[in-house]
Amino acid sequence: MVSYLRLHFTVNGTPQALRIPANTLLLDLLRDRIGLKGAKVGCSRGVCGACTVLVDGQPVAGCSTFAFQAQGAMVETIEGLARDGALHPVQQAFIDHAALQCGYCTAGMILLAKALLAHDPDPDRATIVEWLSSNVCRCTGYQLIVEAVEDAARRMRQAAQDDPGAEA
């Protein structure tokens, strides 16, 4: 039995070891302890998904996930997507398709799309809609987001074809 625990995990590739109260939520840990504010505080009920981050590649609502659940895991946040100044193809597609408005759901939507494309590099529109239905966007009506994800999938498949050795 512990009220505090030592948490070892990686965030965007950087190993972290932190002593945290057992009741710390992943979202609080990321935003207030680690300073990564890209995951947003929305409904606080695991419904809207503005707080989505990836834990071992799986999209989870940071507001409804305890930090202790990420013990030993690889956590990815929106801040970790761009590499060496180059945007991730999903990020670039969101820009090119104006698939964002207020931006509050954007990090979660991009991470959902990244997880989807890792799971299925060539999803049909229905699959994209099914995955994106995990999170709420109140601004866009979703159409431009779906189109951005379709385009990102195309670009990533093309890039994989051009350079089979490159990291997806």
């Binding site: 890209g38 929106i78 820009i95 964002l100 931006g103 954007t106």
Partner: peptide, 21 residues
């Protein structure tokens, strides 16, 4: 022209700051 939104880079990289921050 469909130029990138002024706030696009900040919002897709998680750098955009809101009052909640």
């Amino acid at each position: 022209a469909n130029l990138p939104r002024k706030d696009a880079i900040e919002k897709v990289t998680g750098q955009a700051l809101y009052s909640t921050e």
